[in-house]
Simulated assay, not measured.
Amino acid sequence: MKKDTIVIGTRSSKLALWQAEYIQSRLEEQYPGLKVELKKMTTKGDKILDAPLAKIGGKGLFTKELEMDMLSGGIDLAVHSLKDMPTELPAGLCLTAVTKRFDPGDAVVSPEFKTLENLPQGAKVGTSSLRRKAQLLHVRPDLNICDLRGNVNTRLAKLESENFAAIILAVAGLKRLGFGDRITEVLPRAMVLPAVGQGALAIETREDDTDMRELLAFLNDEATVQCTRAERAFLGRVEGGCQVPVGVYAVPDTQPEHIVVEAVIASLDGQRLYRDKISGKACEAEALGVELAEKLLAAGGEEILQEIGLLQN
């Protein structure tokens, strides 16, 4: 490798820094003598905390500033939560590595009630995710689900300061920051499917930087790559540029070199919910994701997404 110093771009939140520092340590361990620096940045999504994500633009809010700096040469790579990455990347950038997936689940944090089932009628529950909201309301239509923005630490603080009976957060983020003991229940996937790529880290680089891509190859986990390709293809087919209440999760099948993809599209109030699964060859992951999307759209998902698009535009 020609470089002796590389620069990782990262958001400034504690979780983003944990993720960037994890990749930094893996690189320094793999390449003794390599100097790896972090460049901290604040994105639009970090600045606008008083509006729902769906109203201000969704996923790209947490990546755009990092991507612009990478294209101009200010950083060599960016580390993201894969679930924060848009399905289409800016011209000149590519998804170079996806790390082995950590726990993809969604966690209930409720010191008093512990579980979703135990929450009283009309309980106030905090989440910033339309995906979580729709699936939770399908099971518990009585809940009062309120928007909850901010980093993990901020959301945990709001649990008490804003009198939530429970808040819902990603298991991976809580455990990575040492808050695993705050989890009172992990929601079963039969109830709530996770976001695309939830639990995996994504490393983005310039497409023409072959040195960097070779350097990072050891971090790529092929099983996670195959599964998240299917998930991202599903989302790419249904998304339409808006934040939408869909969950999708792919896992290796019992048959070698095959995967199972399961997904859900739900109305915002949770009353209508379409869920299905598909299996096939892992090498055809994108095609499987698109095929499952087509099935759910035809079943009634298309109508839901059109309604949501009208509401958001």
Rank of each mutant, 00 (worst) to 15 (best):
R132S: 05
D84W: 02
R11F: 00
A16Q: 08
A230L: 05
K114A: 07
V248L: 03
D276V: 01
V264K: 10
Q243H: 06
L310Q: 14
C283T: 15
A217R: 11
L148T: 12
V248H: 00
K40C: 09
P32K: 14
R26K: 15
V244S: 08
I278W: 07
C242W: 15
L17S: 01
L17M: 08
D50K: 04
E303C: 02
E207Q: 11
E67V: 15
K133R: 09
E291F: 00
T154Y: 04
R272E: 14
K124V: 05
L310A: 10
L77S: 07
K44C: 12
I168Q: 09
G173L: 01
L187G: 07
L235R: 12
L61Q: 08
V251E: 13
H138Y: 10
A195C: 06
T10E: 05
V108G: 00
G309N: 12
L215I: 03
A107C: 07
V260H: 04
P52C: 00
Q306D: 10
P120S: 02
I259G: 03
A172P: 01
G300Q: 03
T228M: 02
D142E: 10
A91R: 14
E231C: 09
L235W: 14
N153C: 05
Q198D: 10
V79C: 12
G126S: 09
G270M: 09
N220S: 12
R26W: 15
Q19H: 06
V171Q: 03
V225H: 00
K39G: 06
S13W: 02
E286A: 15
R131C: 04
R272H: 13
R272N: 07
K3V: 00
G45N: 09
E307I: 10
Y31Q: 03
K2H: 14
I23Y: 07
F102I: 05
D103K: 07
D211L: 11
